[in-house]
Structure formats: C-alpha cells, structure tokens
Design a protein around this nucleic acid. Sequence first.
RNA 1: GGGCGAUUAGCUCAGUUGGCUAGAGCACUGCCCUUACAAGGCAGGGGUCGGCGGUUCGAGUCCGUCAUCGCCCACCA
Length: 844
Amino acid sequence: MSRNIPEKPALEGLEAKWGAYWEEAGTYRFDRTRTRAEIFSIDTPPPTVSGSLHMGSVFGYVQTDAHARYRRMAGKEVFYPMGWDDNGLPTERRVQNYYGVKCDPSLPYDPDFTPPTEPPSPHLPISRRNFVELCHILTAEDEQVFENIWRSLGLSVDWTQTYATIDPHSQRTSQQAFLNNLIRGEAYSQEAPVLWDIDFQTAVAQAELEDRERPAAYHKVAFARPDGSPLYIESTRPELIISCVALVAHPDDERYQDLFGKTVTSPLFGVELPIRSHHLADPEKGTGIAMVCTFGDTTDVTWWRELDLPMRAVIQRDGRFLQTTPGWLEGKGAETYPQIAGLYPNQVQRKMIELLKESGDLEGEPRPITHPVKFYEQGDRPLEIVTSRQWFIRNGGRDDALRKEFLERGEALRWVPDFMGVRYRHWVEGLTGDWLISRQRFFGVAIPLWYPVLEDGSTDHENPIVPLDEQLPVDPSSHVPDGYEESQRGRPGGFVGDPDIMDTWATSSLTPQIAGHWIDDSDLWTRVFPMDIRPQGPEIIRTWLFSTTVRSHFEHGVLPWRTATINGWILDPDRKKMSKSKGNVVTPEDLMTEHSPEAVRYWACNGRPGTDTALDEGVIKIGRRLAIKILNAARFALGFTEEDLDRSHISEALDTSMLAGLAGVVAQATEAFEDYDYARALEITERSFWEWTDDYLELVKTRAYEDGPEASSAHASLQLALGIYLRLFAPFLPFVTEEVWSWWREGSIHRNPWPKGSEIGDVAGQPEVIDVASRVLTAVRRAKSDARVSMKVDVSRLEITADTLTIERLRRAESDLLAAARAIGIQYREGPFEVTVELATDTG
RNA sequence: GGGCGAUUAGCUCAGUUGGCUAGAGCACUGCCCUUACAAGGCAGGGGUCGGCGGUUCGAGUCCGUCAUCGCCCACCA
C-alpha cells in the first residue's frame, strides 16, 4: 500500500476535508437494524436556538461527543440525534427584537406581510399567524448556524436524526402525551392563583422563577381596632391594603392573643377584617402581624387557602389595578378608589403613601430595606399573582406518595458525578405545587383541546373536547373538533378552542419520545428506549431532567435513561483576562478559526465531569500543539518503510517495554471511559504520548534509521503504538486522528475498534526497561544542558551506579541508550542510583 | 437563611481507596536550528496544598470549624 504522507502536515483544512468525508460515507449514520443490547442511545439536549452559541454549550456537547465516539469504537451502535429547542418565549423575544414586531392576536392575518427592514419603535403589531411565521423563519436560520458550528466541532451526530421542538412531529408527540396524561388523570385544569408576568402576560411555573434582590421599604400602617385605637402592621406593599382580606399573627404571639377572632378596619377603605392566627406568621418580621392580601405573595396564597378567606383581587392580567370600583368597597372606600383605578402597582403605592399621610394612618417615614422578589427568569418586572384557569401536570408537589415515587426514580438513576443527584432530591422535596404547563403565549405547541360553549354562553371547562389521534397535531384556534362546524365557534351550543400553548418544557420533557419516535415508529422506539445517557447542564436538573422523568414515569413506568451525565459550569473569562473594553467577545467560531476545532475540543475534554472550568485560551493552545505533535510524530513513525509490519517482527527489549507500558495505558483509559471520565482518559493518553515522543522516539531513532531485524522491530513497534495512540485520541481529536489513519489504514478510524491490550499481547516485555533508560537519557541531557552544549555532543564516559536489577534492565536497552546519548560505552557500578557523565568537550 | 461544589506553583488545572523528596501545561530562566516537529526540542527555578483545631505511626487526601468564591434553593408581611 502506498502512503501519502504530506511533507509538512498541518491542521488547516482537516475539518472541511473530513467533515465532508464523514457526511459522504455516512460514518455516523445510525444502523437501526441493531438490537437494543448493541445500541448506545443518547438523549441529546436540544439547544435553545436564540442567537449565538456560547462556549458553555460547546463544553458540554464536545464532552458528550467524546462519550459517543468512545462507545462507537467500543462496539456499540450509537444513537446520537440532534434537536433544536425553538418553541417558546426565548424565540418570541428574539423575533420581537430582531424584526421589531409584536404579536396582537386580535389582528387579521396578512398574507403579503414582509417584516420591516429596520426594527421600528414602537414595535409593529402583527397577527398571531404572521408572528408565528416569523418565528419559523428566524429559527430555521439560527438552526443552520448552529448545525454548522456542531459540524465544525466534529460532533458525531447522525444528521438524519434531527428534530425541532416546534416541528409537526414534536407537536404531535407533545399533544399525544398530554392527552394520555389527561385521560389517566395526571393532567388537570384548575382556576387558581398563579404567578404571573405582567409584561409577557402569561403564567409561569415554579421552575422558571428566580429571586432578585430589590430595594423596598417597610411602611408602618395603622388599622383601627374596634375601640378606634391603632393596630400597626408593617408592609412593603401598602398598595395592596385594598385587597387585604385578614390580618394574621403567630398563634403563640402573646402580643396578639386577645385579638384573634376579633376584627379591625382597614385605613382609607374602611373594610372590616378578621384577625387570624397561622404558624407561618413570623413574630420577628415587622410588627409580627401581617396583612393577608389576594395576592401579594405566595404566602398569601397559602393563608388564603388554609384560612378559607375571601378573594379580593385588584391586579389584572396586564398588571393594572381594576378600572372599576371593586364591589367590596362602599362609602368612603368607594370614593377613594377612582384615584388608583387603572394604575400600575408602583404608581398605586406612591398614591397610597400620599393618602395615608394625609389621613394620618402612616406612622413615621418608610424604612428602606432590600429583599428578594420573585421574577420570571426572563422577565423585567416583579411577578404578580393572578387568578386564572391553567393546566397542570401532577409532579408530586401536592401528593406525598407520588413525590416519593419521583424521589425513588432519582435514587435509581446513576448520576455522573454522583453529588448531582442531591440537586434533584432537594428540588423534588421542595416542590410546592403541581407543574403548571399552560402559557398564555403564541409560539408553541397548542393545548389540544376545545371546550363546549353552553347555552348560556359560558364555557364548560370541566368537559373538554378531545381531538382524534389522527387529527394531531391540532391547532384548536383554527381546527374544528369532530362533530362540529367552524360556524359554531364561540356560539352557544358550539365550542371554543383552548387559547393557550404549552410551556416549552412540556415538549422538551419528551425528547426521548420525540427522537426515538415513540408515536410513529415502535420498532425504532424499542431499540433505543430507555436511553443510555442524558447529558445536560446542572442548572436544568430541576426543569428538563425532572420533567422528563415525570413524563416517562407516567407514560412508560420507567426511568427514561440509565445515567445522567452532568457537565460543569463555564466561568466567565471576562472577569479575569479578556478585556471587555476591547469589545472582543470571544465566540466558539473565533476560537475554532484561530486555534482549530481540535484545540477547542481539547479544552472542553480537559474539564472534569461536573467540574466548573474557566475558559482558558492557554489550554486551547495546548490542544493545538498536541494535534500538531500527533501529525509530526506520525510522519516520523511511518516514514521508514511502506510495509505493514505485524508484531512478529518485534523483538527488541526497548520496544517490548514501551508496548507493555502502552498496554497499561489502554487499560487505564478504557476504565476511565467506562466510568464516564473522559478527562482522565485524555490525561492518561496524553501523558503517555508525550513520553512516547520525548523518550521512546529519541531512544529508538538511530536503530530505526538502520537496516535489519532490529530496525524492523522498531518500525513494527512504531506502527503498532501509533495505531493504538491514534485510536485512544480519536474520541477527543477526531480530525487529526482520521487524517493520520488515512495515511496507512483503511476506512474511518471512528468505525475501527477501540484498542485492546491483546493487540500487544505476548509481545509486551518489562515496562521498567524504558523507564530506567529514560532516566539515564534525562541525566545525559541535563549534563549537556548544564554544559550549555548541543545534544549532539559525544559522551566520552558514562558511568551508572544502580542496583543489580536496574543494571540488568539497562543492559537490555544498552545499544539504544548509547546511540541516543551519543556515548561509546557504559561503566556500571552497584549502589544508589547515580549517573556520571563526561562530555567529549570537557577535556578539550 | 439552607444545600451542593470549589479553594494545590504567578495563571489554568491533575492528584484513584490517607503512605516514599506534592505533579502537568502556560508563564519565567538557560541551552540547542539534533534529518518527525523552531507557532519546536531539552533542561531548570518556583508551592507553609485557604485559616485554625482534631483523628492517625503518617493528612493535599478523613472529621470539625471559620473564611472566600461559584451555583442551586428559600414564605416578597
């Protein structure tokens, strides 16, 4: 076989060359004829396609790809799909900002609509259908950009197995799973207070909350006791006095014992309110007695529910106070209300402070504090609590038996690293309610239901009309349920479609079912499910990982995967090194262009599983150097003969010693990979490889340039070792290893078997021989370095003091050692290890 | 306020079940254009393993505690 080894091998161009080859040859195409036992399936995280890809994503995806490549070489058929998470609010936000539009569902569809060339301000209102069309256009563009990056990085994804969470198949899967949940009673709708974002005007789930420290102030407000004397409460939200339904204090709080069961009257509005006791009231906060409002916070909801209090809601879905005077106000209160009608809460607060000062019910000045306030994680204003009808899926938050089942699922899952399982447990233990899946938004999977409209014009939410399976995916706002006609929409005796969509997690919790084609390809499904691994980030354990577990538990009664591999967090480099002032935000594309994709992969694979890692360009540079080193070392190893020499030619002690060590490296790297510790596998391989180039290649060089059986032993050993090193590196550096492989082997390295110690087998000698030879060589180099002379300078006298065993080992590699050291002979002496070197230049 | 993780050389990080003078790369210093590699190679200097206590013959490794950083969670009066 003729070898085509470039004179000056380089990394540039390898990615394009081999990316095209793999696509052409179908190297990573999934072979669905294989059985479940032969398959390794990966529940790939679908990245959110909203703008640009971050180094944090690169980190996790490359690590997963290293696993995939290892398993593929180790004999598994790898099911490695790729998805795009494109439905939901992130896309809506991006479309709004990118095109300068906003969705107004009341507008008619404009088939000739084209988005403005420059985003106008204020944003241009467009119909729901036009808006959704823009979402599809923009996500398609973003997905192409992402796919190009993944391909450049060399992810060994089967690009015929792709999905998007908004595509018809995902919608159908999502709707079918929801309907199954509904039929089994795992999904239900309820009119209840929910956390509400007044800008997006949608409900949000517990998993999407975050606390932000916000300035506020305690306002000491007087309520009137029956005898007219003041009872002070301290509140950060005096604007909610109007929606107060009770005051509450701790049952053991001595200050308020005589008031429990009595009533007080609210300032300004004169509403009579009961004083109740509840253990959640904190005697330490404020005056120890609190307003219960409908609703100021989630504790209010608890008090309202557990103390069976009335509802006096004033904040509407748009965040404004009611336009009309609420029915529970009369007299003075009703006269006061118009001053705050239609205002936002912060405006009402200012007005209330003014009014309370006038009436003398505000004691002293407001006392500034900062406190945590709940926000929707993508929102800009604090969440309010609004009562509305929403859909929920049970998750154990209101059912201890079910909660226990999910905790047990978490116990049964293998976590890499194991401490990540604690996050799951804490989340499930801390759930306070079921999973709210409905969203009052536009770009997402519709809730696939209609409701009967009764003769009195009201909607019957208790008896939803369910679509036929073959209707899915269904859009209730445009499709008509079986047995009805479009003309009956919204009419008494007719129907209405559920206007809401599902939260994006309600669909992405079904990624195994979507990628594995649960609803339309049971043959594929049984070959890939339950999946082997779920790789993902730590921050979405509470959302994606947990919700996937919930859906699989209900639908299939099993864990969706055996193992969850949780990657670490990328620390922001801006904080330390890269100067923001230069405005050079480093993207994956930049780093790949500058240092090569292999170098970026090397950096990612250097991060330990689950360990936070800084973005360090220094590490990337090392990766580049390693890749170039592989090219050059391979050129050397393969440069002596065109002949493929098998291991029967290997006879020299240095060679068999090197191979014995390599067999150990193979064993350790394999063990690390089986343990999902790709980083350790890389470290072990890399360290061994550098020793191989620094020491073995130098020791064997002179002999390799000669002729005869000793030279053949060197050539055969170099080929054998190189073939093994390349395959050990292949999961990390797929391009350069493929390139070198192609110089003298057939087929893709990535479809060749993972190396085994048996390839070296009985050729393995004593690993210590090369170790001691290397020690002596280092001592000789040090002597030359100290003498500030070239390594080519001859050694006139080389005396080695060592124990008997070491001397015996050195003798076996003596000729190689002499050649590498440029010495003519060695004098051995017994004793503690010492090397004495006299250089030819010493005597002049 | 609670939980999890981290803290090892100037920087980025390894250190398996506690065990011989604590490792790597970058940076730094010196030498070498040696026919695989000068966007390289060889060699060298550099660390009270965050602090304080404890267990042990022996602690970077185990226990307690404190500090700092990161992430997650927490009932906004």
